[in-house]
């Protein structure tokens, strides 16, 4: 069992958990993820590693409540245990040898983008960052991003904070302003990563994206996480999660992630009703 040693609500639906998992903490690298199960009947869900402390033996994750499992998770408190917590999975992000990069984060994707950004920074690269949110209330990790980047642009869809508009607009401005990036690194919702890739393509800037397809085992056994990248079949849990954004077949990836949508909607309602009943 894996104990929650710290729980912190970053936003009403975004929560940080620090979890006791010494073996995972010892091996974790930015860009890798874990798979957790909340309880005996629980689904296995993949979550990116936000931070890790090998001395303390803990791993930090930031989770957005979107469905049944993440809802259940949000009802656990400090001192409670997770049934399963396995990792670190996937390949670490390659951060070596880059002189100047731009990291683009969207929504909770920023939680994933942050350790990557920090590693680029620690490797000595000049780091720019663009982070985008729906509105002011959803902005997370701004201070951390600011501390590790020389240029930071915060965007909101509705203009309630920072610059109004999409991350792709801000990214384009930075490129047009003459910034020569060795790499653009994008993490966030699938659609956002797709458009970041479309934005950088005409400029020929290498673009890496962190894919989040449907997963079960995360060890390369089920084939559920398959993607088409450059016309080849790839398994995100062993070959990724990072891929060349210019080669990913985006439409396919977006559609495959909707495979269980009906079930998920139903299960989410069922779970919420259950918690409501308990509360009464």
């Amino acid at each position: 069992m894996y104990r929650i040693v710290r729980k912190e609500a970053l936003r009403p639906t975004v929560t940080l958990y620090e979890i006791e998992a010494p073996l995972v903490a010892k091996k974790a690298q930015p860009g890798q993820f874990i798979i957790l199960r909340v309880d005996e009947n629980g689904e296995r869900i993949p979550i990116t590693i936000n931070d890790f402390d090998p001395e303390k033996g803990t791993v930090t994750i930031i989770v957005q409540t979107v469905g049944a499992t993440t809802e259940k998770l949000s009802h656990l408190n400090e001192g409670d245990c997770l049934q399963d917590f396995v990792g670190p999975l996937g390949k670490a992000t390659e951060t070596e040898g880059k002189k100047k990069v731009c990291v683009v984060g969207g929504g909770v994707g920023c939680a994933i983008a942050y350790p990557v950004l920090k590693k680029f920074h620690d490797c000595g690269a000049e780091v720019h960052a663009v982070i985008g949110f729906k509105n002011k209330d959803l902005v997370i990790l701004e201070d951390q991003f600011r501390a590790a980047s020389s240029v930071l642009k915060v965007c909101t869809d509705d203009g309630s904070y920072g610059q109004k508009g999409l991350v792709t607009d801000a990214l384009k401005e930075l490129i047009e302003a003459g910034n020569q990036y060795d790499e653009v690194f994008a993490i966030g919702p699938m659609v956002m990563m797709k458009f970041v890739s479309k934005t950088t393509e005409p400029y020929g800037i290498p673009t890496t994206v962190s894919m989040s397809p449907i997963m079960i085992d995360g060890t390369g056994m089920c084939g559920g996480c398959r993607l088409s990248v450059g016309g080849e079949m790839k398994f995100a849990c062993v070959d990724g999660p990072d891929f060349d954004g210019h080669k990913v077949d985006w439409d396919l990836a977006v559609k495959r992630n909707q495979m269980y949508q009906e079930f998920e909607k139903h299960k989410y309602e069922e779970t919420c009703n259950l918690f409501k009943k308990e509360a009464q």
């Binding site: 079960i216 559920g224 398959r226």
Partner: peptide, 27 residues
């Protein structure tokens, strides 16, 4: 890669390991 094409491993894992055929499974 269309929706609805899956490996036997995925289908069987959902059913056997995750017990997804039972109503109280979250998978």
């Amino acid at each position: 890669n269309y929706k609805g094409v899956l490996s036997a491993n995925e289908f069987l894992t959902r059913i056997n390991l995750m017990k997804a055929y039972l109503p109280d499974s979250d998978t």
